[in-house]
Amino acid sequence: MSDLEPEQTLSSHDKLVYMANQIGKAFSAEPHDAAVAAAANHIRLYWDPRMRRIILEHLDKGGAGLEPIALEAVRALKGKK
């Protein structure tokens, strides 16, 4: 492998799971329902449709790796879709 080729990085899919969890953690000091709503709203306002579609598809497959607030936020996002 040439040194100019990319090293192994997270796939877009895994990155989005990671990002959703980050968002969930950022609001984790809020009361639970408010945290879920804030995280869902953030994803709705700042993620482009393809990113949202990928995370929703991930949810449909069980949502592996999504931590509780992020998981509920993505579920809430699906509900509003």
């Binding site: 990319p6 877009s12 990155k15 306002l45 700042y46 993620w47 482009d48 449709p49 393809r50 990113m51």
Partner: peptide, 18 residues
């Protein structure tokens, strides 16, 4: 009416081929 891609998201989408 939908938000677009940020620079890192553009690069990720490029690697994904879209």
């Amino acid at each position: 009416s939908e938000p677009g891609l940020r620079i890192p998201n553009m690069l990720d989408a490029a690697v994904d081929g879209v």
